[in-house]
């Protein structure tokens, strides 16, 4: 099994605008927005990269 890529959501406010676009599009419902805090469930996330495309400001990276 290849090791999973890492997903990074820049949610300190330097890029993220807490708009919730990633939360709404995530097909596995594993991203959570709570006012100015975004978290995602590492175990559920498959690194499908859909949120990377949906983010209007480029705050999500997969490497």
């Amino acid at each position: 099994m290849p090791s999973k890529k890492t997903l990074h959501i820049e949610s300190s406010g330097q890029i993220c605008i807490y708009c919730g676009a990633c939360v709404g599009i995530c097909p596995l419902n594993c991203i959570y927005l709570d006012e100015t805090r975004i978290t995602f469930d590492e175990k559920v996330c498959t690194r499908c990269e859909i949120c990377v495309r949906a983010c209007p400001v480029g705050a999500i990276e997969i490497g």
Partner: peptide, 22 residues
């Protein structure tokens, strides 16, 4: 970004073409 709709088992999932990012 409804969570409860999904918890209730309703088909709220969107395809990439079903969403505008704004």
């Amino acid at each position: 970004e409804s969570q409860v709709g999904r918890w209730a088992g309703l088909p709220t999932n969107l395809a990439l073409r079903d969403m505008d990012s704004c």
